[in-house]
Amino acid sequence: MEYQDPEDFIRDDSFLLYCSGKAPEATARWEQWLADNPGRRQDVMQARELVLYIQAELTDVAAASATFRQRLSPVSDLPAPVFPLWKKMLGVAAGLLLLAGSFGIWRYISTPDWLEVSTPLGAVKKVALPDGTQMWLNGGTTVKYIRKFRQSRQVVLEEGEVFFNVVHRADVPFEVRLPGGLQVQDIGTAFSVKSRQQISDELLLVQEGKVLLKKNEQHIQTLEKNEGISIEKGTMKTTAVKASPVSTSGWLTGTVALDNRSFSELGIALENTFQKRVIINGEQLKNRSITITFSRQDNLQQLLETLKLVYQITYEISGEQVIIK
């Protein structure tokens, strides 16, 4: 494509992704283009600025305000900010508030070195990390990340499922630790990780780019686009699995694809998608494997009817609760 005027750039999909600053491949491509066409720097910057103005205009003020209110609440519950002690008290107040359980859809707990974010079941939350990396938390998820994100970029998954779209920086690796002890290090990529108490393995799925899987700082394996790995908790036995954009990040938009996963996991996915309490009865059923795709728009009862036919299960829906036997 020929880029004559600044306006020509903004018809290019990869340029628009580059402007977002969060698509590693597009960023690499345009930085290279700039290096090859140094005379066009001003045009590129102008086009970039135009795109940002459009994005600013499309920004959801209500959502920004909701996040702002979350940050405001621990501050506003404090007495008049007069003493230097105040900063310490902020942490305590945030902790107390948390115990009171009075936080809305998500919350921050502050410690000196780590920030914690979590979501209740049924909520998907997007969080921008300080380096511009985006992380989406599925329902029932807790992650911590290091406060000084510039020197090292560390995220710890404590429970749940997270999708990352990582801004690549060669000098500062981006690393996610899983409860089982494995480390996932990105090389400019988008991927998801999952670890839940009720599920017997941990799962890593790669949607773009490459990731390194490490244990005790030792490199075990490299995974590429559309590859995944299941790691048995305890034994640490690994099994290669297929990944697809839908199985990796479909849940961001309400579509769940489980490929040969357990009924336990189906239960959690149903809870997250339909906001009902789901109980799977019997150990045998919990461990039984299932391959299924469904979305928020589906009718839960019709879905359960299909499961009944295909997997010979029975179910009961009573109010906010679903029991699968």
Binding site: L16, S20, V51, Q55, Q134, V246, T253, T255
Partner: peptide
């Protein structure tokens, strides 16, 4: 360009 979805996710 805001939620950074790819075309398949948008289709879904």
């Amino acid at each position: 360009y805001y939620d950074q979805l790819n075309y398949e996710q948008m289709e879904a």
